[in-house]
Design a protein around this nucleic acid. Sequence first.
DNA 1: ACGAGTTACCTCGCCTGTCAAGGTATTTTC
DNA 2: GAAAATACCTTGACAGGCGAGGTAACTCGT
Lengths: 111, 111
Amino acid sequence: MSISADILRGHTDAIILAQLMNGDSYGYEINKRISQRAGGAYGFKEATLYTAFKRLEQNGMIASYWGDEGPGARRRYYAITQAGMAQLAADRQEWTETKKVLDALIGQKEG
Amino acid sequence: MSISADILRGHTDAIILAQLMNGDSYGYEINKRISQRAGGAYGFKEATLYTAFKRLEQNGMIASYWGDEGPGARRRYYAITQAGMAQLAADRQEWTETKKVLDALIGQKEG
DNA sequence: ACGAGTTACCTCGCCTGTCAAGGTATTTTC
DNA sequence: GAAAATACCTTGACAGGCGAGGTAACTCGT
């Protein structure tokens, strides 16, 4: 089963920040890794991804720089900032809380 | 901690359908029960609630009728339909899947 | 009798995040 | 030399959440 966009809405930033905790990376690669880790059940659309990068950078959660590898298409690398790490920690806490609340609200009940 | 709107987005309908599995109810009461069950961490804004009722009814997930109790403000009761129950089952499955995927994507990792 | 609070409903218009569609440029492969 | 893959980006439409505003009936204290 794949997961609908509205369900993931609001988790986009956290997912990207979490991925960047593994080290600096660039858009294309970040997206592939996320898809892999999600078992193919989920991947960002490109527009969503680059919109998110822009938003995150504007908010100071990530910083970017152009990679200077010789051949191949240019790549813009992203690094998570201190503020981004703090945000991620908060997002993780919120996710824990969300699971509790939603399990209570939509989980099946015994009789 | 309270949960942000974007995180809940897309779960609104499932939460309402799940609540209606306890029997027919009306807007104000549905919302109060949801708040209670969420431990006060979450409650719909009225506009969100009534927007959702409209959407759900248009999609055939719920049916409504006016209550005829004598005194007090009029109440519009909602009942979950067969289609609504099927939708809820699908939503619950999606939620189970979502938890797995998001735990994989934003969960803390051991070293 | 009357004003405040509560119950209970509803709509309009803004904001934000997703994403289909479209576009650019380079390298690799056949 | 053409097709596919890598890699980036923007524009505009759409949908859901919700602030703000509105209606109406009952209850309670004074």
